[in-house]
Every structure is written in C-alpha cells, then in structure tokens.
Computed example of a mutant assay.
Amino acid sequence: MSAHNTAAPYYFVPGPSRWPLLAGIALLVTMAGASAWVNDVSWGMPVNMVGLAGIIAVLYFWFGDAIKESEGGLYSQRIDYSFRWSMAWFIVSEVMFFGAFFGALFYVRVISMPWLGDIDHKFIWPDFAAHWGGASPAGMVDEFRTMGPFPIPTINTALLLTSGVTLTIAHHALRAGHRALTAIWLFATVLLGATFMGFQAYEYIHAYNDLNLKLTSGIYGSTFFMLTGFHGFHVTMGAIMLSVVLYRVLKGHFTPDNHFAFEGAAWYWHFVDVVWLGLYVVIYWL
C-alpha cells in the first residue's frame, strides 16, 4: 500500500472481481494435479505445474490491481487499518501453523517416545529403542546420522539475524526519506535471504548423500524436513515479497509516513526470523 493520497474520507469498496473465482479454479487444478502426481499418474505433474502457474498469474494481477488502486488515491486511513489487521491475523495463523509442528515435535520427543520405550512396553515391542535420532528401531528405518548445528545451520542463523538488521536499517531510511539507501539495504536483505536458501539446499543434499537422512528416516527425518522445509518455503515467500517491495521503491512508490506494503513484508520477515531461532535451538541443538 502506498500513501501518496490518504485523505479519502470514505471506505473504498472495489467492484466485482474475477480474481477470487480464478484463484479458486487455479487452486483446484493445482491440488488435483498434486493428488494425481503423488499417486504416480502420468498427467499429475504437468497439471500441477499449470495450476501453480495459474495461482502465480492470479496473484500478480490481483495485487497489481490493489497497487493501482492505492497509487490512484482510492485508499483512506480506514483501508490502512484493514490491511494492518489483516496482516496481523495472517501472521497469527502462521504462528498457529508452526505451533502445530512444534507441538508434534514436543509430543514425540517428550511424551510418546519415552512412553513407548519404558519397561511395560518392552513386552510388546522388545526391539524398540527409545532414541531420538540415529538409531534404527526394530530395523524399520535405514541407519542415519542426525544433523548438527555446525557449520551450515549456524551460518544460516547469522544470515537471518543480519537480514533482520539490514531490513530495519532500510525501514529507517525510508522513514527518513532516503530512497536510495532504502533500496540498497532492502536489496541486501533479499540477497541474504537468497543465500540462506542456497545453504539450506546444500544442507539437504548433504543430509541425503552423506548422512542418509531422508523424509522417510523415522519421526526424526519427517519432523526435521517438515519444519525446516516449511520454514524455507516461508523464507522464499518473504524474499519474493521484499523483492516486490524493492521494485516498488525503485518505481517511486511509498512515502516516509505511509508505506504499509513495506511494513507488512517486514513484519512477515521478522516473524520468519523468530521461527528460525526456535528451529535452530530445538532441531539442531536439543
């Protein structure tokens, strides 16, 4: 959202839009293709790719309309409040999303695994070993090694923490009216995020090839890849959001006093940073 014009006294209500319908169709196609793909149906992957392309196209044009409305002076302060509340509740939903995965991890490690490994259950599963990682209970899982905090996870932690600093500097530069500095520090933030993703891709290759750690490596492998994978996906989405904001900064959008698109993307990025700190401690150290 821009604020070149924020004095509109009304609450802007957009006219009928085709984008919600097209978004629903694209999501339906995407999920149909994904369902077929995981069941080894030949047309599953191309249909899934078509659906994903449709979602990207819908988001591009839908957000483009919102940007045009904002730059055209149609949004008032009431709209700004609506955007802020919407973004805040979206981040709350993301907290619940990751909270579910952290909760599953806690339940497995602290409750169910010790319970299944106690003396009473030895009569039912005599070969079960109550070890969090690395073991192969009853030969059901191929032997693997767990992922430690050095060096890549620690490097990635430094990268994300640094990106939070560069993003804050960019925000202060925008508030001070220094557009060039805003663009430079925002670009540095995106670059740090991209570097983080590069290291994570290398970490996954290392896990598969050198540690034999896979998604099928028991509960350790599934929780490791689900938590770090979804976090990596969120980092990618955050980097895309910040890239769009950077493009808008270069186009001359935003003012020092009104730039919620920047702030909303920054909220999301800082949330991703905080989630990573939890992952870094729980996944790699404990």
Score class of each variant (00 low, 15 high):
residue 37 W to Q: 15
residue 77 Q to Y: 09
residue 125 W to G: 07
residue 25 I to N: 01
residue 159 L to D: 01
residue 141 V to R: 02
residue 74 L to M: 12
residue 209 N to Y: 03
residue 203 E to M: 08
residue 82 S to W: 03
residue 61 F to R: 14
residue 247 Y to H: 07
residue 106 F to P: 00
residue 278 G to Q: 01
residue 118 D to A: 01
residue 60 Y to Q: 01
residue 134 G to D: 05
residue 228 T to R: 05
residue 66 A to V: 06
residue 240 I to D: 03
residue 132 W to G: 03
residue 197 M to D: 06
residue 164 G to N: 14
residue 72 G to Q: 02
residue 269 W to S: 00
residue 18 R to G: 12
residue 178 H to Q: 10
residue 148 G to K: 15
residue 115 W to A: 10
residue 103 G to Y: 03
residue 54 G to K: 03
residue 98 F to D: 00
residue 6 T to E: 11
residue 16 P to C: 07
residue 285 W to V: 11
residue 150 F to P: 07
residue 255 T to D: 01
residue 265 A to V: 00
residue 76 S to I: 01
residue 78 R to H: 10
residue 169 I to A: 03
residue 223 T to E: 11
residue 127 D to K: 10
residue 1 M to L: 13
residue 37 W to G: 09
residue 219 I to L: 14
residue 200 Q to T: 09
residue 276 W to T: 04
residue 265 A to D: 00
residue 261 A to P: 00
residue 192 L to Q: 08
residue 215 L to G: 15
residue 105 L to G: 03
residue 139 G to Q: 09
residue 54 G to D: 02
residue 175 R to H: 08
residue 273 D to H: 10
residue 47 V to N: 01
residue 149 P to D: 12
residue 29 V to A: 07
residue 201 A to P: 03
residue 62 W to H: 04
residue 126 P to D: 03
residue 169 I to Q: 04
residue 228 T to Q: 08
residue 19 W to A: 04
residue 172 H to L: 14
residue 136 S to W: 03
residue 166 T to H: 12
residue 284 Y to Q: 05
residue 136 S to R: 06
residue 134 G to P: 14
residue 132 W to A: 03
residue 102 F to G: 11
residue 217 S to Q: 06
residue 206 H to M: 14
residue 210 D to Q: 13
residue 65 D to Q: 10
residue 145 R to L: 13
residue 112 S to I: 13
residue 235 V to W: 02
residue 57 A to Q: 05
residue 211 L to S: 05
residue 56 I to K: 09
residue 2 S to C: 05
residue 153 P to E: 08
residue 236 T to G: 15
residue 87 M to I: 10
residue 28 L to N: 15
